[in-house]
């Protein structure tokens, strides 16, 4: 079966001739979680932005990004504004690193979860509300009905990221692009979010492109991974092989540099803690 997303020789040049991504090829098979690892500035977030048409003004792209999650395959890099708005939010959704910044501080959670449902799925206010309650329940927000009327600042960091994930899932996208969604969270909360993503993958066949600089997270969540450095993919393969038998010197350095605590076991849940 052909992958739901295949990027072929993607290059991104920012205004001022700055090439931030070069010759990147990457595949996301349907129903799998694929990881991108790399340090900041390695081009991983730019790659994610390109997949949602969110590159900065006057950036130039080359290559192709074939998306097969819609009615017919399209090259994402050639979409115009109108076609973009049919794909993003509907077929491809995104979760950002910092939910505090990516949720609008002045709009209720209800508005932020339902507004694109009403646009994409032409749902009535009431139907969208009902679905939003389901979604919040799905990402385990207590008292979903009250949450709809609340504002983001009334939630904790982990709860906010759950709200952002609920909003991303609202229109049942086929692919979720998650750009370091757990970096701003503490470890317990992070584990909860990762478990949630894995459940969603199993239950609804969601594909995820998961971007992180945390190799432990990579190992825990992804089956296949790509290592980015200076805008290029320097190594890729099944995550386990990649991390335990790295071929490339840079990957070896990354693996060696991770905190040694034989960590990545799920931490014991703290009594009373909610992620």
């Amino acid at each position: 079966m052909s992958p739901i997303l295949s990027i072929e020789q993607l290059a991104i040049t920012l205004r001022g001739d700055l090439r931030v991504v070069d010759d990147v090829s990457l595949e996301v098979p349907e129903g799998e979680i694929v990881g991108i690892a790399g340090e900041s500035g390695s081009g991983k977030s730019m790659t994610a932005s390109a997949l949602l048409g969110l590159l900065p003004d006057r950036s130039v792209t080359a290559g192709q990004a074939w998306w097969r999650g819609g009615r017919e395959p399209v090259d994402l890099l050639t979409l115009d504004q109108r076609s973009w708005n049919r794909v993003r939010g509907r077929e491809i959704a995104m979760v950002f690193q910092d939910a505090t910044a990516s949720l609008h501080p002045m709009l209720t959670v209800g508005t932020q979860i339902t507004e694109h449902m009403r646009v994409h799925l032409k749902m009535s206010r009431r139907a969208a509300r009902a679905r939003a309650i389901e979604l919040l329940d799905r990402v385990r927000i207590p008292d979903p009905e009250g949450a709809l009327r609340s504002y983001p600042h009334q939630f904790s960091g982990g709860m906010r990221q759950r709200v952002a994930i609920a909003a991303a899932l609202a229109c049942e996208p086929r692919l979720l692009v998650a750009d370091e969604p757990t970096t701003a969270l503490d470890v317990t909360v992070q584990a909860g979010i990762l478990r949630l993503l894995e459940e969603l993958r199993i239950e609804s066949g969601l594909s995820v492109l998961f971007i992180t600089h945390d190799l432990a997270v990579l190992a825990a969540l992804t089956t296949h991974a790509y290592v980015f450095r200076e805008g290029r993919v320097i190594e890729s393969g099944p995550t386990e092989a990649l991390l335990f038998h790295p071929e490339h010197d840079y990957t070896k350095t990354l693996v060696a540099a991770r905190p040694q605590a034989d960590d990545w076991d799920d931490p014991e849940p703290v009594a009373g803690a909610t992620a």
Binding site: W84, R88, D98, A101
Partner: peptide
């Protein structure tokens, strides 16, 4: 970020 997020949702 929240404006990028709004765009990412495919809002007009």
């Amino acid at each position: 970020d929240y404006v990028r997020a709004a765009r990412a949702k495919g809002l007009p």
